[in-house]
Each structure stands twice: as C-alpha cells, then as structure tokens.
Design a protein around this nucleic acid. Structure first.
Lengths: 337, 337
DNA sequence: CTGAAAGCGCTTACAG
DNA sequence: CTGAAAGCGCTTACAG
C-alpha cells in the first residue's frame, strides 16, 4: 500500500501535525521544515488517503450527479458541464444514472449515505420530501431540467421561449396552418413548448386548432404515427412542429415514404438539436438547448453555495434559472441549406 | 447531521460493535437483539458514514472510470455498461473524463489517491509505468478500447473481424474496386479495420490499391475531403469503406453534392453504428460495436478480480478479450432498405 | 452471543 | 513555528 502521513513524518523528522499543515497550507510552517516535508512526500510518493481526510474533515469533496438513463445519450452534454464545474472546483464526480421507468432508485444510495457534499439532479422524478431530507442534512441540491418545488433551485432551458421563437420562424415563412406533435403530456418540456407555440400564433392573430395537436411521447415511433394521422386528413398543415427532434425526424420519414417532399410540400421542425439533426436529409431546423451550460451553471451554483457556507436550507435563496435556447435554422423549415 | 452508530447503540441499548455486526451481517447476533437494533436504525434514520467505513475497511466500494471527453458521446454506451456492472456489484461509480489532446490529466487524481478500489480506463493514452504504479498498489485496472500492454487486461471490439465482415459483404455485392478512408493512422482501431479489409480482399483474390487508401482522422471533415479526392480520379471505386460512420456520412454528403447517387453510383459503408447511421439517407450500412457489453464485461471482470482477492499484480492473468461486432446492413451498401 | 478497545489515516484546537 | 493528543465514525480481532 501507499505511504501514510506517519511515514512521511518519520522520514522528514517531524510530527504528523506538521505534515498535515504543509499538506493543507494552513498555519505557517517554517520554510525549511516545509521544504523537508515536501521532499519526503516526493520521496515516498505520498498522497493523502481521501477517506481519512473525508472522515476528519466531515466532507467528501465529491459532487453527486443523478441522471436518467436514456438511449440517445441526450443528457451527456449536461454531464460534461457538471464535470467541468466539479473539476474546476476541485471536486470529484460520483454518478448514479437512474433507469427510466424503473422502481430501482439508484440515487437513494447517494441520498442516504454521506457520499457527497452536494447534488445535481437531472430530470429525475423525485419526491420533494426526499429532497428535503437531503437538504436538511446540509447537502445542497440543484435541479436541472426539472422543477418540482420552488424551494429547490433549478436550471432549465427556456422551453417557452424556444417554442415561441421557432413558431415565429414558421410564421415568417408564411405558414399559417400549423400542427404540433406533443411530447409526453404531463412534462413541463412539452407543455412549455406548446405554450410558446400558442403564444407566437396568437401574437400573429393565428391559432392552433385542437385537431392539429397530435399525441406523441417523445419517442420516434409516435412521430411517425402522428404524420400518418395527418396525411389521412383532407387538408395537410403547412408545417409540423414536433416537441423533439426524434419525433420530427420520424415524421419526415413517414411523409417522405408517402411521396411528400419536405419542406416543399410540408415543413417540419423539431426541438433539442441532437447531433442527428445536422445529418438527416433535409437537415432539421430545430431549437438548440444549452445542455452544457445547464450542467455547468447548475453545478457551479451548488458548489458555490457549499463553499460560501450559505444557509443551504433557506428556501428564500432558491433561484429558478432559465437559460436561453437558440434557433438552429437549417433546411426542413424551407430555408435554403 | 445524521445519526451515528453511537446514537443507534445507545438507542438500542447495545454496544457499537453489535450495531456494526447487524449492519454487516457478520457474526451471529441474537435475533431479538438484531430486531431491536434494526428498529433503532429505522427510528433514527441511520445510515453508515461511507468514509468512516472506507477508512476502517481499507476499501472504498468505488469503481473509477476514466473516459475521453468527446463531442459525439460515442462512449456513453460504455459508461452505461460500466455503471450497470458497478451497481450490480454494490459499487459506486466515480468518473473522470479526460479532455482529448489535453495536457490536463484528470485521471491522475484517481490514480494517486485512494479514491477507488478498481479502475476502468476507456481509450485513454496512458503510460504503462503509470498504470503499473496503480496496479502495484493493489488496484486492479482494465482497459477498454485500448491495449497498451499485455500485462494489463483489456476488452476491445473485434475491429479486424468487423472490417473483414463488412468488406466481404461489399465483395458479395460484386464490388471489386474498393477504397478505404483511414482513421487516425496510429490507432489500433484504424489499423485492425484496415487489416480486416485486406484480409477479406485477399481471400477473394482481390487487393486494395495503395492509392485507394485515403488519409482521414475519424473526424467528419476528412471524410468529406477524401470523397472529393476520389472524385478527381479518372475512375471511381465501386465502394468506399470509411473507418468510422462520421467520415462515411460526410463522404456521402460530398458525393451527393457532386451529383453522385449512393449507393447506385458508388456504395459507402462505415464503422461504429452510431445512432445517426439509422437516420441518414440512405441509411448507413456499418459495423456495430458492442459498446455496452464492452463496458459491462470489463467492469465485471475487474470487480471480480477484486472480490476474489486474486493476485491483482499477476500479469499471467491478464486476458485480452475481443468482443464480436455485428454487421448492420442498411441501404448505403446497395441492399434494399 | 456481546462488549471493550485498538486501529484505519487524517485534521485541528490546545499548549508551549 | 511545532508537537502531543483528541476526535472523525466505523470494523474487527480478542476476551468472556
């Protein structure tokens, strides 16, 4: 095994207290002594045991991240942001990814044990009373892509603004008859995008007919089925706004398979700006979500809270941050590539 | 803060030793006593401090994962596999993602400190002597998608077999004049895929002309440029095998932009089976890599080593596992969708 | 079956 | 500026 602080102390001819002091740059240590200790650390290739440190310090220097397990690795950019923030602040990153629709709650482990100093929860269904338990224990929590309670800080993409902006773009093309393919009904993502769409339409004196709201679930298949449904109608809408790219891409597939041209016969746009959006044909006009930024800022925020010893439990300090989305104009809306 | 083992002991009227015993199901404890302790644990909502436990046990119950930071989240499936294996075995997962081409070595932190009991390194450029230091400290290491030294166990996709199989498929189409767009030259991925291609060609009495090996670097742009280069030639190959999907997709883009039809005028296939491969038009024939399995098996293996107290340092036990790839036949090779 | 005690490897007042 | 010692919260031989 590796050398301990005792080995270093003996090697340098000092006490372990002194070694600890040079390790942590705390109280002043005589330059010569420091020098000697540093040499011994080097010589013995010593590195402090994280667990002993954690126990003595009552902190773990670890940030916990809970993230849903999804196929399309959509959330991976968020992970990168969180990780960069953690690394930057000298924290390690412990990850628990939660299988969707599973009874198994992997994050509970992180919750209950003293594994982490702070937590970032991404799009996880969790009860507020579970969160409160963690927070009351002094572990600050921040939510990303989810906002279950005003007393917990959260970071989200501006779904409303994104929905509005892309709808305005469609209206700018001269499209007046629009259709919307929904995501899973109860999700705020879906609701807010739809609200944004309605807002843009209303501002232009237009409206969204109820029959032009097709039920989807964010999964590819439902985009396909929704497009089929629309093609059965006597009259096609001018454009389809799907609540995410997956459904948009599959809607395009259905339309093309039935001889329709996108965007010439009908425009289709999505939401998310997944990598695929740049590669499908036509390339997909969509709304970019600031995923990396979401993860970065959320993690920075929760770590700052921790370091400032702010009152973690105070609900008054819980901000709800909305990060702006970006319209990505490509071909599927009718714009030239 | 949460209750400690002392609180539980007092509450149950026993010693902390007894509490510890019921906690760990070690020695036998009288059923009645156990019952009482369990009740107290419940009542106080106690959960053992992981760091105290780690210190006393000299182990962390944590698996370290080092993974390169790439844009396309290609490796995310590996993470899922590793995570499932870790969760299954009761380990937590600590992640360090290493920015590509960066001097900053985030994994060194994991290496040096006693943070993890075992490590999985994915496609990371690391020196063998660094690994040996870790291994000699009793921390087993497994490599995925990388094989720097025979003394360290590794898990890789069968790049040779995959390259051979997809080439055989092209030959089956009747294509005899093939071109290859390379990945970064020195990578085993690239070399092995090319070797497989050559093997398949030779077995059919064909060969790959040196001029039909175009230099690429796994990044989209180079696929595009390689296709341009090929189109300048007096004679087009029948089919292009790009060392990964990214380059294949961009090669198709270049070909189509210049009025060529894929696969009618020229076939293009890739390697990896990224999600995009299913969505591009034509859909991309490619080789699926068993990423999830790679992560799962590698992690299982390293954790088994740990639990069996096998001699971690023994080079004799270091297997080099090759997991089979799967040919994904889609449209771009000339097969019907 | 159970308790008392040493030990894991650090940090940090407390003296000096 | 530095040492001795208590303490962080567990586990585990060792007695009994």
């Amino acid at each position: 095994m590796g050398a301990t602080i005792f080995d270093v102390a003996k090697h340098a001819g000092v006490s372990i207290g002194t070694v600890s002091r040079v390790l942590n740059n705390r109280d002043r240590v005589h330059p010569k002594t420091r020098e000697r200790v540093l040499k011994s650390i080097e010589a013995l290739n010593f590195s402090a045991n994280a667990y002993a440190r954690g126990l003595a310090n009552q902190q773990t220097d670890t940030l916990g991240l809970v993230i849903p397990q999804v196929n399309d690795s959509f959330y991976f950019e968020i992970v990168r942001g969180v990780e960069d923030a953690a690394t930057e602040a000298g924290y390690r990153l412990l990850i628990a990814s939660q299988p969707r629709h599973s009874e198994e709650h992997r994050y509970l482990d992180l919750f209950q044990r003293s594994y982490v100093d702070a937590m970032v929860l991404v799009a996880i269904d969790v009860h507020i009373y579970e969160l409160r338990e963690v927070i009351d224990r002094g572990v600050p929590v921040v939510l990303v892509h989810q906002n279950i309670d005003k007393s917990v800080p959260s970071f989200q993409a501006d779904n409303f603004g994104g929905g509005r902006e892309i709808t305005q773009h469609l209206i700018g093309h001269g499209y007046t008859r629009l259709a919307y393919i929904t995501g899973t009904d109860h999700t705020p993502d879906n609701r807010d995008r739809l609200r944004g769409m309605r807002d843009a339409l209303n501002s232009s004196g237009l409206s969204l007919e109820e029959t032009n709201i097709l039920a989807g679930d964010f999964l590819p298949g439902s985009g396909y089925r929704a497009a089929l449904e629309l093609m059965r109608r006597p009259e096609l809408p001018h454009a389809i706004f799907a609540a995410n790219d997956q459904m948009a891409v599959d809607a395009i597939k259905a339309l093309r398979e039935h001889g329709l041209r996108v965007p010439d016969d009908i425009a289709v746009v999505g939401f998310d700006d997944v990598l695929m959006a740049q590669y499908v044909s036509p390339t997909l006009t969509t709304v970019h979500q600031p995923l990396y930024e979401l993860g970065l800022q959320a993690a920075q925020m929760v770590l700052t809270t921790l370091q400032n010893q702010e009152n973690v439990r105070s609900p008054a300090l819980a901000p709800s941050v909305l990060l702006p989305t970006t319209l990505k104009i490509r071909q599927s809306c009718g714009c030239k590539g």
